[in-house]
Simulated scan of single mutants.
Amino acid sequence: MSFGLRKSASNGWCRNPPISEDQQQEKVEEVRRVVGPLPEKLSIYCSNASISRYLRAQNWDTKKATKMLEQSLKWRLEYKPEEIRWDQVASEAETGNMYRAPYTDKQGRAVLVMRPICQNSKSTIGSQIRYLVYCMENAIMNLEPSQEAMAWLIDFRGCSLSNISVKIARETAHILQYYYPGRLSYVILYNPPKFFESFWRVVKRFLDPRIANKVKFVCSENQSSVKIMEDLFDMDKLDSAFGGRGGELVFDINRLVERMREDDKKMRSFWGNLNACEADKCSSCEAHGPEVCPGCNLAMANI
């Protein structure tokens, strides 16, 4: 049985694991033993797939992976990302600066669209990061079963130096690298302005090289870089802002509100059902392990 520990098209963390699948599973179990018993949602979060992402991030070093996972669990216990709801972040989203696209890439990865020029000027760093975390949790929940990582599309149209922040970039990198390892497949920087080169040199210093390598610069006037988009997306569905033929995707806050509130219901139901399954010690869960519980129809790949 595979626990998703090999390199997939979505994660990109380790092309050829240096150890066998059995050894990988042993390391997963070792991390679980060291971490010990956990309460409620934290125990659910530590699925085989989740632990394996931390191991891949630390090159299968169980000591480092355990420390990283424990720090992440502490953050989740305090920050409670799975409990953030739309009404708590709606004011940050109203300008259309970031949202989950109504399409996926060719592999079924959820896509977060970001537009720096639409950044809400009234928001604080804390509120921006909270909305980012909400969007990432939402994207993860909407991944296809075969995927474990999302994609980011950043549209730089009209962007000026005042629309980007090193502080925000640093905090985003920290959240992504330490609390969501293996959850980012790639980032498309679409038509970045000339001044972004110096900004990127600064940001790259505090990025894990594996994250930095996921960043792709795409210029609409360069045919070779445009091919990157053609390889990753169905161009008939991709909106024209990114060179697609799907027409201009006009940001509609009312449609976004409707989608996000529906997703909030799914998120609430998802974690509520998982807690019920945990409390009832579902026999199907015990038989099939923490990855999938067909008895209560819960897919753990999205945790």
Rank of each mutant, 00 (worst) to 15 (best):
L69Q: 04
L73I: 05
K80A: 11
I125G: 14
L132R: 08
Y99L: 07
W86K: 07
V133E: 11
I175E: 03
P102S: 00
Q147H: 00
G96R: 04
L132G: 10
E78P: 02
Q177T: 05
V89G: 02
R130N: 05
A173Q: 02
A149Q: 03
A57F: 07
Q107N: 15
I84Q: 02
C118R: 13
Q177P: 06
L143F: 01
W152R: 05
A110H: 01
K122T: 14
S127H: 14
S91L: 10
S91D: 14
L112V: 12
E78N: 11
Q128K: 08
E78I: 08
S123F: 05
N138S: 14
Y178A: 12
S121M: 10
M98L: 15
E92S: 10
V89P: 00
S162R: 03
D155V: 01
Q58K: 09
R170E: 11
R76F: 02
L73Y: 12
G108R: 03
S160K: 13
V166R: 05
L69G: 01
P81Q: 02
L143R: 00
M150C: 06
E137D: 06
R85F: 13
R170Q: 13
K67R: 15
A110Q: 02
N163P: 00
A169W: 04
R109Q: 08
H174P: 00
A149V: 00
R109M: 00
P81L: 07
A149W: 00
Q88L: 09
A169C: 06
E82R: 12
N163D: 15
K167N: 15
P102W: 01
S162Q: 10
N163E: 08
R76N: 03
R56D: 09
R115W: 07
I164P: 00
Y79I: 03
A139D: 10
W86P: 02
S146V: 07
S123P: 06
S160R: 05
T172K: 06
R130K: 08
K64C: 09
P102E: 00
R76W: 05
R100P: 01
Y131F: 09
I164A: 01
S72A: 10
E171S: 13
A139V: 08
Y134G: 04
D87E: 15
E92D: 12
Y178E: 10
A139K: 00
I164V: 13
Q177N: 03
S72G: 01
V113T: 15
L143S: 03
P81V: 09
A101R: 03
M114V: 14
K167R: 15
V89S: 01
T66M: 02
M141C: 09
Y99R: 07
R100L: 15
I125P: 06
I117C: 10
S127M: 15
S162N: 08
A139N: 04
Y99A: 03
Q147F: 00
N97R: 11
K122M: 11
V113S: 07
W75H: 12
K63Q: 10
A151C: 13
L176H: 06
T66I: 05
I117P: 02
T172W: 07
Q107G: 11
N142C: 05
C118I: 02
A93F: 11
K167P: 03
R56K: 14
